[in-house]
Amino acid sequence: MSIQHFRVALIPFFAAFCLPVFAHPETLVKVKDAEDQLGARVGYIELDLNSGKILESFRPEERFPMMSTFKVLLCGAVLSRVDAGQEQLGRRIHYSQNDLVEYSPVTEKHLTDGMTVRELCSAAITMSDNTAANLLLTTIGGPKELTAFLHNMGDHVTRLDRWEPELNEAIPNDERDTTMPAAMATTLRKLLTGELLTLASRQQLIDWMEADKVAGPLLRSALPAGWFIADKSGAGERGSRGIIAALGPDGKPSRIVVIYTTGSQATMDERNRQIAEIGASLIKHW
């Protein structure tokens, strides 16, 4: 067993022997301040990774656009098919120029040779490549099948209805392509620590998230040296922004954090800054 596999296998073990965790309302004060600064709703939840206990939450059962955070769930569904012998990570998928959609920095470079399922998941999570996500959605049967996968996990809230990039439209009061912070946090925890996926697939999923290259201005910008984070960000229309993450000190994750916002007129930089400040408060009061 590799060191990384050992780390993920012992996530519940280490967490069980940690000192009790206590909620700190100071972080919620910052979440509410972010709402004021952005002029928009902000949803927040913080779960203990081992027990699933909610440590703090704000608007945990209000719907927010998922945006690209759905790509972690998508690759979880792909990995479940791999575990069941219905898919192979090494299978190569070929596609054409007509398949390319807006923001496809990886797939646009491989029109000639195609990409493997493993490479597509890596591109979808680490670079948020939209064509990679659409190609992977095709392998599982489309958005409705991802929703069905989530329902089978016990998540009857999260739903995907459309493809990239239309799913980022974020129309107010439109339930399409949305989740709730509580539902997303619980589902992410199941994917990373539950028995739904094999140990190898859980490790692969967290490795992809740990290698995320496009979430630097968010929670990662607030992390002290030595902290662990595996995350996936999302951005959408109407001032929408979000991030889902597993993080913790001492090089291992111990909490799940989900943050979503929508309806702001603020710039992307300002949305990023507010999420980073929430992260800084979380870490300060850990």
Rank of each mutant, 00 (worst) to 15 (best):
210 E>V: 12
166 E>L: 12
53 K>P: 03
40 A>K: 04
261 T>H: 15
188 L>R: 00
250 D>G: 06
165 P>D: 10
238 R>K: 05
211 A>D: 15
41 R>C: 05
238 R>H: 14
184 M>D: 00
110 H>Q: 13
48 D>T: 05
44 Y>A: 02
46 E>P: 02
142 G>N: 14
119 E>A: 12
268 M>H: 11
268 M>Y: 06
269 D>C: 14
222 A>Y: 08
53 K>I: 14
206 I>D: 04
97 Q>H: 09
230 A>V: 13
54 I>M: 15
263 G>P: 05
190 K>A: 15
180 M>Y: 06
145 E>W: 13
79 L>Q: 03
269 D>W: 10
197 L>P: 04
103 Y>A: 10
83 D>I: 03
39 G>Q: 13
281 S>D: 15
41 R>E: 15
49 L>W: 13
282 L>P: 01
98 N>Y: 11
138 T>E: 15
238 R>Y: 15
158 T>V: 04
261 T>A: 12
204 Q>R: 08
208 W>L: 14
225 A>G: 09
156 H>T: 12
207 D>S: 11
161 D>P: 02
224 P>R: 10
221 S>E: 14
102 E>A: 10
56 E>H: 07
274 Q>A: 13
116 T>G: 04
183 A>H: 14
223 L>R: 06
220 R>G: 04
96 S>L: 10
279 G>N: 04
230 A>H: 01
51 S>I: 09
131 T>A: 06
76 G>E: 00
122 S>Q: 11
73 L>S: 13
252 K>Q: 07
257 V>D: 02
142 G>K: 04
97 Q>S: 12
57 S>W: 10
260 Y>V: 11
110 H>A: 14
73 L>F: 06
167 L>P: 02
256 I>G: 04
225 A>I: 09
66 M>H: 07
86 Q>L: 05
94 H>W: 07
25 P>Y: 09
239 G>E: 03
165 P>R: 08
112 T>R: 11
56 E>G: 09
155 D>W: 00
178 T>F: 03
25 P>V: 10
251 G>W: 09
226 G>R: 08
172 P>T: 10
79 L>A: 04
163 W>D: 09
238 R>M: 06
266 A>E: 13
245 A>Q: 00
210 E>G: 12
109 K>M: 08
274 Q>D: 05
104 S>A: 07
228 F>M: 05
158 T>D: 01
155 D>A: 01
229 I>W: 01
212 D>F: 02
159 R>A: 12
76 G>R: 00
90 G>P: 12
263 G>T: 15
248 G>R: 02
73 L>Y: 12
236 G>N: 10
68 S>F: 02
76 G>Y: 05
195 E>V: 05
115 M>G: 04
105 P>A: 10
160 L>P: 05
285 H>N: 12
108 E>T: 15
244 I>R: 00
214 V>F: 06
140 I>W: 05
172 P>Q: 06
49 L>K: 04
125 I>V: 07
49 L>T: 11
83 D>H: 05
136 L>G: 02
45 I>T: 15
173 N>I: 10
203 Q>N: 07
35 E>I: 04
41 R>H: 12
276 A>G: 11
145 E>H: 10
64 F>A: 01
100 L>Q: 10
80 S>H: 14
232 K>S: 01
106 V>W: 15
155 D>Q: 00
32 K>M: 13
203 Q>C: 05
43 G>S: 09
103 Y>L: 05
84 A>S: 12
252 K>F: 15
132 A>Q: 01
133 A>N: 00
42 V>I: 07
213 K>C: 05
39 G>K: 08
235 A>W: 02
217 P>L: 11
109 K>Q: 11
68 S>N: 03
112 T>M: 13
224 P>N: 15
102 E>V: 07
59 R>A: 05
260 Y>G: 01
131 T>S: 11
42 V>H: 02
55 L>V: 12
194 G>L: 10
224 P>D: 08
109 K>V: 08
137 L>M: 08
239 G>C: 04
161 D>H: 12
49 L>A: 11
33 D>E: 06
220 R>Y: 02
34 A>N: 03
62 E>Q: 06
274 Q>V: 10
253 P>K: 05
283 I>S: 15
71 K>E: 00
65 P>F: 04
92 R>K: 14
68 S>E: 00
127 M>R: 12
90 G>Y: 08
281 S>L: 07
161 D>R: 03
39 G>P: 04
77 A>Q: 06
231 D>F: 02
165 P>Q: 06
255 R>K: 06
118 R>F: 09
99 D>F: 11
230 A>R: 01
113 D>G: 10
215 A>P: 05
172 P>Y: 08
169 E>K: 10
177 D>A: 02
131 T>H: 04
52 G>P: 04
26 E>W: 15
187 T>S: 10
46 E>G: 06
151 H>R: 09
143 P>M: 05
190 K>M: 14
123 A>I: 04
70 F>N: 10
244 I>K: 02
34 A>F: 11
81 R>T: 11
50 N>V: 09
134 N>M: 01
114 G>K: 05
97 Q>F: 14
76 G>F: 05
67 M>L: 12
241 R>H: 04
71 K>G: 01
49 L>F: 11
257 V>Q: 02
38 L>F: 06
113 D>N: 12
286 W>R: 02
121 C>A: 11
284 K>A: 11
69 T>P: 04
171 I>W: 15
270 E>R: 07
58 F>S: 14
36 D>R: 14
85 G>F: 09
198 T>C: 12
65 P>Q: 03
222 A>D: 13
243 I>R: 00
56 E>R: 07
161 D>G: 03
150 L>E: 03
60 P>Q: 14
174 D>Y: 02
226 G>N: 13
118 R>H: 07
257 V>F: 05
106 V>T: 15
63 R>W: 05
200 A>E: 11
224 P>C: 05
68 S>T: 01
44 Y>C: 01
128 S>W: 01
62 E>K: 06
55 L>M: 08
251 G>D: 10
54 I>W: 14
126 T>G: 06
70 F>H: 07
265 Q>W: 11
103 Y>F: 06
63 R>D: 03
272 N>W: 02
263 G>E: 13
168 N>S: 12
181 P>E: 02
243 I>W: 05
62 E>T: 06
96 S>M: 12
153 M>C: 08
242 G>N: 04
243 I>G: 01
117 V>I: 10
83 D>C: 04
123 A>G: 10
61 E>G: 09
181 P>N: 01
51 S>D: 15
31 V>S: 04
70 F>S: 11
281 S>A: 09
244 I>T: 15
246 A>W: 07
192 L>D: 02
160 L>N: 05
30 K>S: 09
221 S>D: 14
228 F>Q: 07
142 G>I: 01
209 M>E: 01
116 T>N: 15
267 T>H: 09
167 L>Q: 03
36 D>C: 14
158 T>Q: 01
240 S>D: 08
106 V>L: 15
204 Q>W: 07
87 E>N: 05
219 L>D: 04
231 D>V: 04
147 T>Q: 08
71 K>P: 01
50 N>T: 10
145 E>G: 11
55 L>Q: 12
60 P>D: 13
244 I>L: 13
279 G>I: 05
253 P>L: 06
233 S>L: 01
228 F>N: 12
209 M>F: 03
110 H>V: 11
65 P>V: 05
210 E>R: 12
72 V>W: 04
253 P>R: 09
116 T>F: 05
259 I>G: 01
249 P>R: 11
259 I>L: 11
52 G>R: 05
232 K>Q: 01
24 H>N: 09
242 G>F: 00
147 T>Y: 03
203 Q>I: 05
198 T>S: 08
162 R>P: 03
168 N>R: 04
61 E>D: 10
217 P>Y: 07
146 L>W: 11
68 S>L: 00
258 V>P: 00
286 W>E: 02
237 E>L: 12
34 A>R: 02
39 G>D: 13
282 L>D: 02
228 F>T: 05
196 L>K: 10
27 T>Y: 02
236 G>Q: 03
266 A>Q: 09
150 L>C: 14
100 L>C: 06
156 H>N: 09
164 E>G: 01
99 D>L: 11
55 L>C: 14
